[in-house]
């Protein structure tokens, strides 16, 4: 059973630059990513928006496999700050999972 955490997006996005909600799921980022990361960023951002914490945590390797190269950012038609959003997710892992 999926447990939803309604405040997940607010917890991940510590400042207003986290704009995963702008994503319209067009798929350009996935198509262009040199790492061929299937879950990034579209699916992961959906999990965050929907409060699906367990799904986010299950994709730890995905979150840390992004190059932060911004090739997706500069081609995203919705202006999603993809790399910065990934950094926010990493910070969330550091705080909530690794307890750094």
């Amino acid at each position: 059973m999926t447990v939803l955490q309604p405040h997940l997006a607010a917890e991940v996005g510590v400042d207003e630059s986290f704009n995963a909600e702008a994503c319209m799921n067009c798929g350009i980022c996935s198509a262009i990513c040199p790492m061929d990361i299937p879950h990034l960023p579209r699916e992961l951002f959906r999990y965050v928006e929907l409060g699906m914490r367990d799904e986010v945590l299950a994709h730890q390797e995905t979150v840390f496999s992004c190059l932060l190269c911004k090739l997706c950012d500069v081609n995203c038609p919705a202006g999603v700050h993809i790399a910065d959003n990934v950094r926010s997710l990493r910070h969330y892992f550091n705080r909530s999972v690794f307890r750094i």
Partner: peptide
């Protein structure tokens, strides 16, 4: 082929966590 603002990454950012992925890129 990938150049300027469309450049491709060297893989370096993954060296500290996933060296094999870094090498492949």
């Amino acid at each position: 082929e990938h150049s300027g603002t469309q450049t491709w990454c060297c893989g370096g950012p993954l060296e500290s966590l996933f060296p094999k992925k870094a090498a492949a890129q």
